[in-house]
Design a protein around this nucleic acid. Structure first.
Lengths: 177, 177
DNA sequence: GCAATACTGTATGACGTCGTACAGTATGTG
DNA sequence: CACATACTGTACGACGTCATACAGTATTGC
């Protein structure tokens, strides 16, 4: 319930400890972004994960837990507890899937739908603030580089986990003209 | 000790759930990057935090715990346990600061110094892999945007925690010409 | 049909980090 | 000097996530 609020002065903006540079900045930034969202969502007594879940379900309708886990980028186990919490608060409900007795269809209640509205608003406001002074094309460039980066990371991880194979390196995402 | 290894297929590359876009990508990417580092460092039986600590101390010499915490972007409490672990493994040692009896000066042992070499190597290799296909100026642009973003996030968080003040918005970091 | 395999959600124990509260020590002010 | 305030490292309990193992259910191949 109580969401973290502190603000580590995050010294390393660009004094960057000698090894790690862009990568560090990336992770520090990500942490801050998450923190900002958590912080704003605290007024709704939600954290980012919970809010994302609600928003997703409100948008796309009843969804299985596994799919939710994938979409939010956390494990099946973890999503279970998140849903438990939200269900206990009456924001979300589980109904059995008629076609597959293993799966729960997770959906928002009316209360949840209302909450989704608030979430969207918070989101919109904060996003606007975050974008202040950053041009559209810069954002797109950022997104592109990060996609590329994700690609490389995936490859790197693969290479670590099964190092034998000579990896054919990737259908390059086209450069930003 | 056992470091996490799994690889959530992180579906949302750019199918991005309608709310949250660049921001989501950012956080997903960051998670992957951290994972990649952890994964590579697992051969040394280290995680990114531990490795960063060693590298930092090896580079800059004995450092107080609080300063370490700030530089690594985690709390004073957390850094304590990290140091405990490394100390138990004989990689790092605490000596009392002669000028201030509250503080420990944390430094690497010889074993630690050797380890720092390995870490630097792992780091260099992985960084090269991550940069594959990403130009220097793109990286710089990325760094700039993220710095700007950090700036905005800081402001946003401030605005949340003490919302009264009309924040004079920031000495703009100069655009990337 | 039946066995083998694959998948879903849950239980459990672990880890890293957080926030708070604390005791010990420095530092600044009267 | 004494006192108040600020800072350092630690103890503790909490949270979110992870990995693993499991039981229940689908699906596939013979």
């Amino acid at each position: 319930m109580t969401t973290r609020m502190t603000q580590h002065l995050t010294t390393h903006e660009l004094d960057s400890p000698p090894w790690l540079r862009v990568e560090t900045t990336l992770m520090a930034t990500a942490r801050l972004v998450r923190q900002a969202f958590d912080c704003r969502l605290a007024t709704l007594d939600l954290n980012l994960t919970q809010a994302s879940l609600i928003a997703y379900v409100a948008e796309f309708g009843a969804t299985s837990q596994t799919r939710l886990a994938d979409h939010l980028g956390i494990g099946r186990a973890a999503i279970g507890t998140v849903i438990d919490q939200l269900q206990r608060r009456g924001v979300v409900e589980r109904t059995p899937d008629p076609n597959d007795r293993r799966v729960w269809r997770v959906d928002v209640t009316d209360k949840g739908r209302a909450m989704a509205g608030d979430i969207a608003e918070v989101d919109e406001v904060l996003r606007a603030e975050l974008r202040y002074g950053i041009g559209r094309e810069e954002r797109q460039a950022l997104a592109w580089v990060m996609t590329r980066l994700q690609h490389n990371v995936d490859a790197a991880i693969d290479r670590t986990t099964h190092p034998a194979t000579t990896v054919s390196s990737s259908p390059d995402p086209q450069p930003p003209t």
